[in-house]
Design a protein around this nucleic acid. Structure first.
Length: 419
RNA sequence: CGGGGUGUAGUGUAACGGCAGCACGAAUCGUUUGGGACGAUUUAAUCUGGGUUCGAAUCCCAGCACCCCGACCA
């Protein structure tokens, strides 16, 4: 992508009225734009990151047998009456009237759609288990959106639903999903600061497991077991807290943001929708369900919250909008020619590259924009580097740059493409 | 939804009830050219509606929007 053509503007000025670093950087670097409280546009840079996150999640969901589908956002109110969540969740539900008397719910989640849908495919124990997921917009009238992407009213969410014939099967799959979540967060670069955390089950069940990423911008308080590293959410912390896993009683208190959540819903939804199957013994039984969510935008915000410096964002390679940021100084024909060649070579190698070809910007402008945007590898081509038949390569996460001979670039390409 | 705060050029900010200013950005010209460079010229603003006043960005009322604290959640 030519930076001169990219739909974005960076700004030096701090964003007014922001309370988190990720909100400020993502706005200033041109990743997102706030439309209203808790509602954001994803600009080309931001959308690119979102799509990378989506890819990672999709891959891991498919690896554990998830089949992707797409459920409607617009849902009949009756289904929400059936589960009584029209009352239980009424504060966050966007309810709207159609032309006639018909009322609709803008989906805050999809149990009310996927459960009746499952009735069309589940008859026998032979039809179980199965797993379906989607990556789609959710709408929740949050009482108080905050911290940029960390709490919003409209957000992309991956929601996986599992259907089982018995508790053991549900329990096993629940752990399979937990493991997949661990892989996803690791791949997204927040593995070392993300903890599986015991929490309340909300309107679903008694307990659930959250995946909490440590950050000062987080609004949850969690207690991390110093021995086994499991987390416990403050909402269920009791007086004499003991780790449910290793019985240890020493904890570290941390602020964190919930990037994912897994629930065993049991018969919470199969009951109101009468979702049953015929078991081996010939008796009809209720299907057991699990649901598993990850908020993509929030995950994006959490990644920034845990990877930045004074100058800007430091994206992990796995989700960065581009892998290479090419800066061209000295707009001489010689430099331009070399830069354009590198640009094309990268594309040939399937390495995503943002090429700062802007001729009306000084070196300082370009350096600062590059630091703010946070692309993993920065390559500078100038008269100075060409004198050495070289380019200058610097990793965003590192202090020092190094000169690399143009003839040696193949090695660099290989390195960039790794994992 | 309860409590508090703030609304000024595209962005960030100033202005005692008395000429709406500064910085960034954008545009033109010239000088620069490896960490937001310099000079000149230009561009562009008081959320909406009422009220008080000789005079309102400033005070009062209402609305709207945004932000913060609290109760709820990926």
């Amino acid at each position: 992508m030519l930076q001169s053509k990219l739909f974005y503007k960076t700004t030096k000025n701090k964003t007014a009225g922001v309370d988190s670093i990720s909100h400020d950087f993502l706005t200033r670097a041109g990743y997102i734009d706030q439309l209203m409280a808790g509602v954001y546009s994803f600009l080309p840079l931001g959308f690119s990151v979102l799509k990378n996150i989506e890819k990672i999640i999709r891959k891991n969901m498919e690896e554990i047998g998830g089949q992707e589908l797409l459920l409607p956002v617009l849902q009949p109110k009756e289904n929400w009456v059936k589960t009584d969540r029209i009352n239980i969740e009424k504060e966050i539900i966007f309810l709207l009237k159609g032309n006639g008397y018909k009322e609709y719910v803008l989906g805050p989640t999809h149990e009310e759609v996927v459960t009746p849908l499952a009735k069309r495919v589940i008859f026998s124990y032979r039809d179980l288990p199965f797993y379906v997921f989607q990556i789609q917009d959710k709408l929740r009238d949050e009482l108080r959106p905050k911290s940029g992407l960390l709490r919003v009213r409209e957000f992309m969410m991956k929601d996986l639903y599992s259907f089982h014939a018995n508790q053991t099967d549900l329990d096993n799959y629940y752990e399979v999903v937990a493991k997949a979540y661990g892989k996803i967060f690791k791949k997204c670069g927040i593995g070392s600061v993300t903890y599986r955390t015991l929490a309340s089950g909300g309107s679903f069940s008694k307990y659930s497991d959250e995946f909490q990423t440590i950050t000062g911008a987080g609004e949850d308080l969690i207690y991390i077991c110093k021995k086994c590293g499991i987390g416990i959410n403050k909402e269920i912390k009791n007086e004499n807290l003991k780790c449910p896993k290793c019985n240890n009683s020493e904890f570290e208190e941390k602020k964190a943001v919930e990037v994912g959540n897994i629930f065993k819903m049991g018969t919470r939804f199969s009951l109101p929708f009468d979702l049953k199957f015929t078991d081996r013994d010939g008796h009809d039984k209720l299907v057991l369900m699990g649901c598993y969510g990850i908020g993509l935008g929030r995950l994006m915000g959490a990644i920034v919250e845990s990877s930045y410096d004074q100058k800007g964002i430091i994206w992990p390679k796995s989700v960065a909008p581009f892998l290479v940021h090419l800066l061209q100084f000295d707009n001489t024909p010689k430099v331009k020619k070399a830069a354009q060649k590198l640009y094309k070579d990268c594309q040939k190698e399937d390495i995503t590259i943002l090429y700062d070809d802007r001729e009306n910007k000084t070196a300082g402008d370009k350096f600062n924009d590059a630091d703010l945007i946070g692309i993993p590898y920065r390559i500078v081509i100038s008269e100075k580097t060409l004198k050495e038949n070289s380019v200058e390569i610097k990793e965003r996460s590192k202090e020092k740059a190094k000169l690399v001979k143009i003839t040696q670039l193949q090695k660099f390409f290989k390195n960039v493409k790794k994992n």
